[in-house]
Design a protein around this nucleic acid. Structure first.
Lengths: 190, 190, 190, 190
DNA sequence: GGGTAAGCGAGACGGTACGTCAAGTCTTCTG
DNA sequence: CAGAAGACTTGACGTACCGTCTCGCTTACCC
């Protein structure tokens, strides 16, 4: 076991903390997620956590960002409709069915209570996510399949916001049928 | 002064608690909102709160529901475009600029952590709010301004979800211009 | 059921309270004896208790005094040794084996914490008990079996205090053999 | 300032708690002695108290035992009468006039309500006190001033129980004259 | 024999202290 | 010198009773 060394932080401890946080969130929910619990589960001293993360939400963000980037890289098939359908379907599954999705919902929830969490979430995730969501449209524009004047931001909002609405508020499922419908609706608009 | 009687609970105390909860949420945020704080501010015993509310979120819901119903009653001018523009603008203002809106954001946040809060929020507010959001469209259908086959639920989601997306996630302002744009986009769709 | 009348307290309620207090003390001990518990058990309103007794110890004293007077009336056989043996044996049994004895120990305990309880216990019980303890000796003096100069108070202290010492402090049993020994010791002294 | 370390508990905190408990008992009596009060007075967190003591009576016992051992060490002058007179007088003063005596009375009181307190008081104090009370007699036997057949336990009970009787029940003072009388009476018995 | 007032049950109220939990800080020792 | 261990202060939690206060019902007396 690692017990500290004189050459910088322990990557071992870092990983253990991130995984413990993820696991515990899924197991017990955000309310049951405590720094002490993470420390115990990770086999790490509380102080080690406080040394490197200002709060338990920062741990979750750090654990979450990579997952999101990895899972939500948009496809590029050369066909806008296909790209959008796949991307939205994947986004919906990510948010509703994966552990990382549970972490996202917890973070989005905490962001309502704590502006610093909101800021971190936007800076470290949402902007990147927005960029990923835009990619299929930008590709289409580059291919000439969409006019260069297309309002990409607006289009992204139109496409993804109903998904978040269901995920964060109504709790309704977000089936493929529904995400496909969103794409169809958007494409038929022009 | 009132100190209890056999007719059941003290309306005085109930009001004091609801107001104190609202005030403290706005003042200190959800994290700083404690049952003890509410009790002190309301001039009420902690036990009185626990006697009538199972948690601090239930207090907020009770305090919130009436406000929402009151503030968000949709207009009925006889013109769909006008009704929708006014209603969305009012919704956006409610969510972003009023104290009750702050309460809503806190509740929506807490709903991500606690399924019972989510259920209560849906049962006591969201369903009613959905009905209110649908009203302008239903009125238009009744007038014959929209086809009877209109998918009202889908239309409502399309209209309001971008507002919630901004309110809950991006934190961007939701100006009148934006809500008007949503209406125009929806109406031009058919 | 009795629901009050215009002229004086309900004897029914009084008895119910005294019995409930006794029972609960034996069942749950003094720490578990609450006014609310007594009220519930007695089928009486808390207010009725507070109307007639200033504290729960006063209830116990009232319940106790009669029991003691009844149980501890000293015998008068015409023989000092017999009277003393019987009286001490009965006192020991009363203190260690009866419900009333448990009440006494609780009251004696509470008297250490609360001077008003101590005063009430002395005024309402101990002085009378002292008189009862002295009776066999006074009878003997009256019969001429003891000199009139006998220091009765000192004798009583010598006879009974070892019993209380065991009951209140060491917790040792106080068998007949032991009380008889006390009598023998005292009588052999002269 | 000390804020905890891995070598276990803070002796500083321990002392502060014991002294605060003693002081508060004398100041406010047992009823007014609260864990919160002790914590505040000692400048210690409530949790620290609960970490190390199961109840406030355990605090008092711990605070009391040393005091008693120190104050009540019996003399050994080589003369039984002198030893007993001095020891009983000192015991009486200890119980009636010192702060530690007040603690003892409170503990003896609580022992009537709570068997675990009774057990602790016997194990941690009474047995040792009994041994101390016996010492003068044992010394006398060793010197040959008393027959080896002397019933020491019975003698101790005879000598000290009237003192406890007055302290715990009648509340009468226990002057030197009285304790001397007890000794005289005992010695004249043989 | 109807009105009136005291005693009663019920139980909500403002409080105080309970014992628990986790937060975040600090200190010491180990590798 | 980072990390494991863990004691510390702080403060909120939810609970249990306290003693006080209506309230409406049920008598029993009194006009």
């Amino acid at each position: 076991m690692h017990h500290g060394n004189r050459h910088g932080r322990s990557e071992e401890a870092r990983q253990a903390v991130l995984e413990a946080a993820d696991d515990l969130l899924v197991e017990k929910g955000f309310a049951g997620l405590t720094v002490e619990g993470i420390a115990t589960r990770a086999g790490v001293a509380k102080q080690t956590i406080y040394r490197w993360w200002p709060s338990k939400t920062e741990i979750l963000i750090e654990a979450f960002v990579d997952d999101a980037a990895q899972y939500l890289t948009p496809p590029d098939t050369g066909d806008l409709a296909t790209d959008l359908r796949r991307h939205l379907a994947r986004l919906a599954d990510f948010l509703t069915k994966t552990d990382a999705g549970a972490v996202f919902r917890a973070l989005a929830g905490q962001a309502q209570h704590d502006p610093t969490v909101a800021d971190r979430l936007r800076a470290d995730h949402l902007t990147h996510q927005c960029a990923r969501d835009s990619q299929p449209l930008l590709n289409a524009i580059a291919r000439g399949d969409l006019p260069a004047t297309t309002d990409v931001d607006s289009a992204v909002e139109q496409l993804v916001s109903p998904i978040y609405y269901r995920v964060l508020l109504t709790g309704e499922p977000v089936p493929r049928k529904y995400t496909n419908h969103l794409v169809t609706q958007y494409l038929s608009q022009t």
